[in-house]
């Protein structure tokens, strides 16, 4: 594997289509946080025909609920949470122009199909690599629903956020393609 590819947000359609599953990337620019509670609220906005609290087109959402920021730091430890819980809400966001997601764990068939249809990418961050990821976050601003505490939507300005393209815009999924390559028979 060669060195990681540098990329910036927002994601253009061309960049999204050029990313290949298995590629390591370093992401710089602004990304938005959102986990369970924020996704329910985003979904309420969509169903009630209200605008989302930020323009989602070309953006990347990071599934995270960080630990509290110690004095002098912009954020606490900030590793990914399990993406699957956001699956029911994701296709609608992709249809509105969301281009990328960062999390850990598998995605549903419906999400993968919507990603292919909309040319979007799913990045994996390493679960538990929370102190390392925090180092790449240089600013954190609340965008919506501060009452949700760590589950609020924040705009994070990141520099060289380490991630891996897990599912690309063509539906190639590392969780499906990789484990069989390393499977071996066990003696019994």
């Amino acid at each position: 594997m060669t060195g990681p590819r540098m990329m910036s947000t927002p994601l253009s359609a061309e960049t999204a289509l050029s990313l290949k599953s298995g590629e390591a990337v370093l992401i710089s620019g602004d990304i938005f946080t959102g986990r369970d509670a924020a996704h329910r609220k985003l979904d309420d906005c969509i169903r009630e025909g209200r605008p989302l609290p930020f323009d989602i087109r070309g953006q990347v959402i990071y599934y995270v609920g960080p630990s509290p920021a110690p004095p002098g730091k912009v954020i606490g430890s900030a590793g990914p949470t399990t993406s699957g819980r956001m699956d029911p809400f994701t296709p609608a966001l992709l249809d509105l122009g969301l281009k990328g997601m960062i999390g850990k764990g598998t995605r549903s068939e419906a999400v993968v199909q919507s990603m292919v249809r909309n040319g979007a990418v799913y990045f994996g961050a390493v679960g538990g690599a929370a102190a390392l990821i925090a180092r790449s976050i240089i600013q954190a601003d609340t965008v919506a629903w501060p009452e949700l505490g760590p589950e609020a939507v924040f705009r994070l300005t990141v520099k060289d956020f380490p991630a891996i393209v897990v599912i690309d815009a063509f539906g190639n999924d590392l969780y499906r393609t990789e484990p069989p390559k390393y499977r071996r028979e066990s003696r019994r």
């Binding site: 609920g65 430890s77 900030a78 590793g79 180092r135 891996i164």
Partner: peptide, 30 residues
Amino acid sequence: ESPVGRRVLEQIIKNHDAARATGMPICQDT
């Protein structure tokens, strides 16, 4: 042997170094 697996392990190890150096929690789920 897996290049992606190695990348993940590298980040896990670097994360432990970062946590020890900064006193930040290893994982946000404490």
